[in-house]
Design a protein around this nucleic acid. Structure first.
Lengths: 195, 195
DNA sequence: AAAGAAAGTAATTGATTACTCACAAATGAA
DNA sequence: TTCATTTGTGAGTAATCAATTACTTTCTTT
């Protein structure tokens, strides 16, 4: 009992993410979080002013980690097609270990109910597609991607493919191994991008 | 007052869909439905045993109409690539007029909370992808699609692309015209499928 | 017109849930 | 030791919402 505040905040965020992954956002009640952390329900409100700020912190935590994992694909100087393939692989790997991410990002529950969270989700998606667009542009300049593609447009389809896959995975109860989808997905994607 | 039951049921389903499209599934309370239809809240339960059965009826209504719209693409005998392009166009057109569909089908709210609705959603998606797979197979036999594709696998990517696009459309508040995305999406898709 | 069924409602109930508050225990610095 | 801050809790509150109940109105059929 009586842990430092920063540590408790982190425990609460992680409990919320676990619950979201297992049972969906609705079941992430402040009581359920408290039970999992092992504290009383009002104690949750010592550390977060409202329930929404817990989700905001969770999204922030996930997004920071995700971009940290993907960073190498954006800054390394290898061939763009290899880096994009690695991005797909790393992205699916990350999400298969962070099932809470699609639950939070792709749940209308969040963006329709809280303008703050909606803005956060939109910002993440815009940043994500922007990074992919840059990567595609680099690939075009290096001659490994078709130059008649609009990089922004293509980046949206890359994102859509990945998100659509993740959604199916989520709807079908995580019923297949997400990482195994990386190679075939890339094959399909590459066929559309290559010069 | 005192309309025939079948008509009232339909009014309730349509009110639920409108509310879902406008404000998200959460706000589709039995009270909100009743207000929109112009009846008292308990009257809703005269026509549907539970709230879930309203959603089930709504999904059924949408899915029936959707497959009716797409049917021509599956049964006509034209070139498979043209039929698939038409499918994409018709699909996006249908959804842009039935915003409730993605809200219902892609909301974890429904499938995570009701086994019946989850099964319904999974069934629709399976059927949808199965039809597309058949279409792709026909295209391969006719020589207009690459024969090294697995039709089932490819159909999942077609579905993922469309769903991912729709999700972005929904997250960004219907902020662009969905129909206008049909042609560029097809261009991208066709590049990956063509022989 | 009378009977019975269908459609409707007002009033409530019970369950859930985010959030508050007054107070208690632990922690740490002076 | 003392005193203030941090962390925690038990006992609530107010709001929301699906569902029920007991009752009334409207319509159809004979």
């Amino acid at each position: 009992m009586g842990k430092p505040a920063e540590q408790r905040r982190q425990e609460i965020v992680e409990a919320a993410l676990e619950l979201a992954a297992e049972q969906g956002v609705k079941r992430v009640t402040t009581q359920a979080i408290a039970d999992r952390v092992g504290i009383a329900q009002p104690t949750v409100f010592r550390h977060f002013k409202t329930r929404d700020t817990i989700f905001a912190a969770a999204i922030d935590f996930l997004v920071t980690n995700m971009f940290k994992v993907l960073e190498v694909c954006f800054i390394s100087k290898g061939p763009a097609d290899e880096r994009l393939q690695e991005l797909v692989t790393k992205q699916l790997g990350f999400i298969s270990q962070q099932k809470g991410l699609p639950r939070l990002l792709f749940s209308d529950r969040l963006h329709l109910e809280s303008p703050v969270l909606k803005a956060a989700v939109q910002k993440v998606m815009t940043r994500y597609m922007g990074q992919i667009a840059t990567l595609i542009k680099e690939g075009q300049d290096a001659g490994c991607f078709r130059s008649d593609l609009d990089p922004d447009e293509a980046s949206r389809y890359v994102a859509a493919l990945i998100q659509g896959l993740i959604m199916r995975w989520s709807i079908f109860d995580y019923g297949f191994t997400l990482e195994k989808e990386a190679d075939p997905l890339w094959k399909f994607l590459h066929a559309s991008l290559r010069a």
